[in-house]
Structures are given as C-alpha cells and as structure tokens.
Design a protein around this nucleic acid. Structure first.
Length: 478
RNA sequence: GGGGUAGUAGGGUAGCCUGGUCCAUCCUAGAGCGUUUGGGACGCUUUGACGGCGGUUCGAAUCCGCCCUACCCCA
C-alpha cells in the first residue's frame, strides 16, 4: 500500500530494519565512502553522548580518565607474542610521514595495551602506587575482513571505552574483574538491556589474557552480540613490559593486570532491543529528547497555545528534562509519526482544550495516554518516565527469557538455534567436544560459569561426550 | 576465506546487450509561493544524476581496463 511507502521494514526482517532505521531515525549515515566507517548524525550522536556519560559516571566512582596516543611504534606493538598473533592481521600501519618512509612503522591502535603498558612500567615503582585504575574513551582501528556493519562490525570503533588496571596480586586483579562485571551489569541495567555474562572458552579469550568474561545480549533475530568484555591479564603483559613494584619487604615483584572495554555495540544493542516496527524506542535515561511538546494550534488560539507551550518547555527544561518543542509548520499527525520514528519516549500534546482544563495530554511511545496537570507537570513527568523505563526493562527481559532454551541433545540444539534462540547445554569443557558442538551447529560456545538470573548454574552430562559438564551458553553470534 | 548481485538527483527505478535526445520517470526528497493544522494535507512553480580514475570514439550512463563502495548467500 502506497500510504506506507514511508514505513520501515518490519522488525522481524531485522537486518533491513536495522539498516533503514539507522538512516531514517538519524542515527548514522552509512554513505561515507570508506568501507567500515560511518558518520554519526547529531541526533544519534546525542544518544551516544548520554549513553557514554552514564558509563563515565560509573567509572569515575573509582577510576580516573586519561588519554594515550593513537599511534603505537612497531617494536612496542610486537613485544607480546600472543597479543600480536591475535591482532596482526587487523592492524592498520602508518608507513610514511609525507613522502618519507618511516624508519619505525606506527600502528593505529587496535586496542591500547601496548600503548599504555610501557608507560605503566615507568609509573609503577612501589606497592604504594597500586592499584592503578585508569580508563580512556578513544577510537580504535581494526582492518576487519568480515562483512562490516554499522555499530556492530567497524573498521574504526569510534568510542572504545577501555579501562586498564594494575594490582599487586593475582587475587586483587581477580577482585577487580568482579568489580568490572558488576559495573557493566549496572550500566546495562540502566539502559534496560538484559545481559548474559559468561566465561569465554579458552580458545576465545583475549590474546594475552588468563581468562575472559564476556557480556552478551540477545538481539531480535536471536543472534547474540558481544557488548562487553573483562579480561584478567595475569602477569603476561607485566612480564613483557616489565611492570614491577617494590613490596613492603623491598623485593621487586611483578604486577598483575586487568583490562575491560565496551564499544559502540552498546548502542547497537540499545537500538535493536527496544525498537519496534514504528522505529526507535529510547529509554528516557539516554533519549536525545525525553519528551516532545506538540502544540495544537488552531486559528485564534494560536498565540495562547504557543505561549503556554513555551512556558511548559521552560518549566520542564529548568527541572532538568530534555524537552523539544516542535514548532514546525506541520500538521500534528505528521509530527507524531516523526517523533515516534525517532524514539522519543513521551509526547506532550497541548491544545486549546487542554489549556482550558489546565492539563496536558501525555502519550507514551507505546500509545498509552495519561492526562497530566500543568500545575504539577514536573512530578507527572518523573512518574511517567519512570513507568516507561520499567515497561521497557520488563519487555526486554521477557524477550531474553523467551529466547533461551535448555537443551539436552545435539538434534534439539540445532533446532533451538535454527528457531533463533540461545541454548543452554551441558559441556565438559574439553576442546574436542567444543569444536564438535560448534562445527555441527554452525554456532559458538559463548561461555560457561554463566551469571544470569535466567540461567541457573547446573551440572549435567556433556551434550557431546556424556561426561560430567557445566551449564554452557551456545548461540549464533555476530 | 569462497561465491553472487549491484552503484543513475535527497530517496526509489528505467535506460546499458545494440554509443548520438531538446523533456526518462515515480516519491512522504530539496528550494519557493499560497491555502491548511486534535494521527502521515493540498495546489502551483522550480532544482537536481549517471560511484571514481583512465582508455576507445567526432561523441560514453551505455564499450574496455583498473579501483572504490554497498548488499546477499555459503565456509
């Protein structure tokens, strides 16, 4: 039907929906002429800003923000053998300064360990210097060879929020890993994004780590998206970069380290999990505008309504809300659709009838209407936005729950994965069985030691060999 | 990693095989003017393109070469 020429593809056609929505809701322009690099529209950039501010606020409780250079000299980058193996095919190299060939090639950081740790070696002298907990929010470059996707698989990650900590002992570093997990859990809860947290199998850990804990989300099509990782680096890097400290007895000891990061995939999850067939749905906490005021101006009452609308905007802005007053010369209906596509959580309709009654009509993104008293509109907004947040969180949790399935046989595993769900199986943690499971199902073992309210920690027979095994997540991953 | 399809105005398409257009075409695109406005208004005027570089040619969206980019499928 031609009336719907402007409609999005339905969300169950996820790939088409996602690409179209990014453009239509003014998140990103994918037309930048370099593969894997995309442009943020101001509207999308504002969402990014509010999301990152939340993470900054969490980190700033006991981390300090810092900034290291983008370029890493070849000899530093090449020091840690496992680390190189993990990244060497994905590094962009700067080889020239102008027309002069550089004596020392410079890597565009794919991640910052080798930029940061030589400096940590200089900074760490004594046990009194520890722990160090620094983070930075920077762009990183990876020459991805797989198909690139906006926000999901990028050649320039425009905002890698990476923390790097140094501790006196392995156990203290382990404790830091736990704190980082708690921090990420809190971050994603704030975005109403349910998470599955698990320990990656050994072959899938960060190059140069003792172990890796990952945060995954289940996307609308049932694929999983890794939206955060926490690594216990042990003493791998401190050996390589000579990060040592003098303990209380005057002895030189190796330090232990962790690092953890989140990329703009958190925005991909935010958009994908909450959006619907009409477009974006933003949790109030990170919405570019938390409410849009649509004045209904007819004939002679035009001035009255506009004056009242401006006062409403001022009152709400003063109270700390992000509010847009839409004064464009469009019919109200056109504005409704416009802001629904862009995910504004609440629409405030103000017309002559409302004005006479001293009220304003508040319409949630899901269509629910509430009439708010103008006199106490600030309290009303707080209440309604809170309800919206709760509803979004509950809806997302329901989606996650319904996309998890306990599975006890290989046949059932394949069926579950093909239905677009994530499976919980038992696995003996042997590599052979793991490879077998992944090959037969064309899926990935996400991890064991699952921390999720949806997945109880249980023991059972390995789905491949029948020996004792632990609860393990298996899914098709982005 | 392997394969496939495609790039024409803000968006969507035709034209290409068989080179030649003063007007290609559609739209919820852009710029104007006017009437409108409680769930996607309408009339009139108008703007604008052949992914990039090179080649063949009197003449290239069309033929040839190289490159870039996008999307889909399969390891």
């Amino acid at each position: 039907m031609d009336d719907d020429a402007g409609a999005l593809p339905p969300k169950n056609d996820f790939s088409a929906w996602f690409n179209d929505l990014l453009w239509r809701a003014e998140i990103m322009d994918v037309r930048y002429p370099v593969k894997g690099l995309y442009v943020w529209f101001p509207y999308g950039f504002a969402i990014r800003k509010y999301v990152y501010q939340r993470l900054r606020d969490l980190l700033d409780r006991d981390h300090q923000e810092t900034l290291f250079p983008l370029l890493i000299p070849e000899q530093e980058f090449m020091k840690e053998a496992e680390h190189i193996k993990g990244f060497e095919d994905e590094v962009y190299w700067v080889t020239h300064g102008g027309t002069t060939l550089l004596d020392v090639k410079l890597a565009l950081r794919p991640t910052s360990e080798t930029a940061i740790y030589p400096m940590y070696a200089l900074w760490v002298r004594s046990h009194a210097d520890l722990p160090i907990k620094y983070y930075q929010i920077v762009n990183t470059f990876r020459y991805e060879t797989k198909q690139t996707r906006p926000l999901i698989r990028l050649r320039e990650i425009t905002s890698f929020k990476e923390a790097h900590t140094v501790h006196a002992t392995w156990e203290e570093a382990e404790q830091q890993v736990e704190e980082a997990i708690a921090l990420y859990r809190e971050f994603y809860n704030g975005l109403c994004i349910p998470t599955l947290i698990s320990k990656r199998p050994d072959w899938d850990k960060f190059p140069g780590a003792d172990y890796t804990i990952a945060v995954d989300a289940i996307m609308p099509n049932g694929k999983t998206l890794q939206i955060g990782t926490v690594h216990h680096l042990g003493d791998h890097f401190s050996r390589t970069f000579n990060i040592t400290y003098e303990d209380k007895n005057g002895e030189q000891k190796l330090a232990y380290q962790t690092c953890y990061g989140i990329s703009e995939r958190c925005i991909a999850a935010l958009i994908s999990i909450h959006g619907d067939d009409k477009g974006l749905i933003l949790p109030p906490a990170v919405a570019t505008f938390q409410a849009v005021i649509v004045p209904i101006t007819i004939g002679k009452r035009h001035e009255d309504v506009m004056t009242a609308a401006q006062k409403l905007r001022t009152d709400l802005t003063t109270a700390g809300f992000r509010v847009k007053l839409d004064t464009r010369d469009l019919r109200p209906g056109a504005k409704y659709y416009w802001w629904e596509l862009r995910g504004v959580p609440l629409r405030l309709e103000l017309g002559p009838r409302d004005l006479d009654a001293g009220k304003v009509m508040a319409v949630k993104r899901n269509g629910e209407k509430t009439s708010l008293e103008l006199a106490t509109v600030t309290e009303g907004m707080t209440r309604v936005l809170g309800e919206i947040t709760d509803t979004l969180r509950a809806r997302a949790e329901e989606h996650t729950k319904s996309h998890l399935c306990n599975v006890e046989s290989m046949d059932a595993l394949n069926a579950t994965l093909n239905e677009g769900r994530v499976a919980v199986v038992h696995w003996c943690q042997q590599r052979e069985c793991g490879d077998g499971i992944e090959e037969k199902t064309n899926a990935s073992i996400l991890g064991t030691d699952v921390r999720s309210v949806y997945v109880p920690v249980t023991e059972g027979k390995c789905i491949a060999c029948g020996k004792p095994g632990k609860a393990t997540l298996v899914g098709r991953a982005y």
